[in-house]
Design a protein around this nucleic acid. Structure first.
Ligand SMILES: [Mn+2]
Ligand SMILES: [Mn+2]
Ligand SMILES: [Mn+2]
Ligand SMILES: [Mn+2]
Lengths: 220, 220
DNA sequence: ATTAAAAACTAGGCTAAACTAAATAATGGT
DNA sequence: ACCATTATTTAGTTTAGCCTAGTTTTTAAT
């Protein structure tokens, strides 16, 4: 089954929204996610329903099918492998890769992805800490907790970010938070939910709840 | 100025046809080159004329403009750099790269190409021996002669192939002709134009005029 | 239970890129 | 100079993907 670039982008968005725990994915959510109008989404949902990558009932929700999940994960796999390539090999900064990967993920060539994967040494995570599905769509996910939900004195390692926007990533670069950093929660402010953490046993950092909620930690 | 993928493909075909010495490029030639119908070509020529990448007069020929040449060379540059990447880094065979490069050449990211070029060590030629234009569209071309036009006892080095089809390239692999090989013309058959050559001072090869005409040699 | 607001969908229109069939222009041979 | 052939363009459709405006359905509040 063949998906167009637009269909792949929609399906990927639907998959991500589905994974976010929500009961069902709304037309408006999708429109917001891919910067399009709800009317266009309705159109596309009908088409995706016909292709059986989602199960769609007008006015009620939609559900991604097993087929849809598999295809979405293939696109996500490609996206993340390309991100690794851009950072590891071409020395892109982690905040520069998203738009390019958004294009590269649609290149059609199974051989290309197979070889790229090997060339990158079968990476398990992308530059933002997100897991790279294998060729069958299996994802090895680690138990992660948002930094703002940790308690004082708890420690761990930063393993991913929830927000991959350039603005957020550059902020993290600036303050010296990076994936792999060992951290410990020194203090939490009840009032606004902001936290103080110790990074690599050297440096202390204050961050707002908003920032902390976008940092994912593997507890130790 | 922004070109769509289709426009880039047309312009590239027009550029290549223009370079082939022909006085002017015909609608039918373009249609044949990109596997489409003449009616579709007429449509596109009007659009390309409006964008001033070609100069177009209905029923008479067309001529690529300086702007058009520059844009075409940019696409060609990307195509050939990606081919080098696929062969040098991902170990594609030289007959496997064309279709994938045909897609990759349309990825929009100046930074990506700049970095890719550096990563590949600023290659001057692609896997088929074709020169890679620099970022300003300048091409350093070598004087090349088709193998079938060489005389007995003349020698040189295979530097490129005219036909990059998988069938032709695999045939060359099979008989042991490759880019960089040192050759000498041992014999030419008047009747059918076929030639006998010595490869790397070791091996003799017979080939038809058709094959020889698609092999380009740097004479020494 | 009604009704106002929000969400979602339909209708109709636009553009890009392709096609087939029909019309028109250029050309080459007598 | 004419005519037949060939090349090219135009006209009219189609499909994908998007949009705005208007309609319908759901939902949430009274
Ligand atoms: Mn994309
Ligand atoms: Mn990522
Ligand atoms: Mn192409
Ligand atoms: Mn090539």
């Amino acid at each position: 089954m063949e998906l167009t670039t637009a269909e792949e982008n929609y399906l990927k968005a639907i998959y991500h929204l589905s994974e976010e725990g929500k009961k069902s994915v709304s037309t408006n959510d999708i429109a917001a996610a891919i910067q399009t109008k709800p009317a266009s989404v309705s159109d596309m949902l009908r088409k995706l329903g016909e292709k059986e990558v989602i199960q769609y009932r007008k006015y009620y929700g939609l559900q991604i099918t097993e087929l849809g999940k598999r295809l979405a994960l293939q696109t996500i796999r490609k996206h993340r492998l390309w991100e690794v390539f851009l950072v590891d090999k071409l020395h892109f900064a982690w905040d520069e890769v998203h738009e390019v990967a958004e294009q590269l993920e649609h290149i059609q060539s199974p051989l290309l992805i197979e070889r790229l994967d090997a060339y990158l040494n079968y990476p398990k995570f992308d530059p933002h800490g997100d897991p790279i599905p294998d060729e069958y769509g299996d994802v090895r996910s680690r138990p992660r907790i948002a930094l703002n939900e940790m308690n004082i004195d708890q420690g761990g390692q930063i393993v991913a970010v929830k927000d991959s926007s350039a603005a957020f990533l550059r902020y993290l670069d600036k303050v010296g938070a990076y994936i792999g950093a060992r951290i410990k929660v020194l203090d939490k402010v009840e009032f606004d939910g902001s936290v103080e953490i110790l990074v690599d046993q050297k440096k202390t950092l204050f961050m707002s709840k908003d920032v902390a909620s976008n940092i994912l930690v593997l507890q130790s």
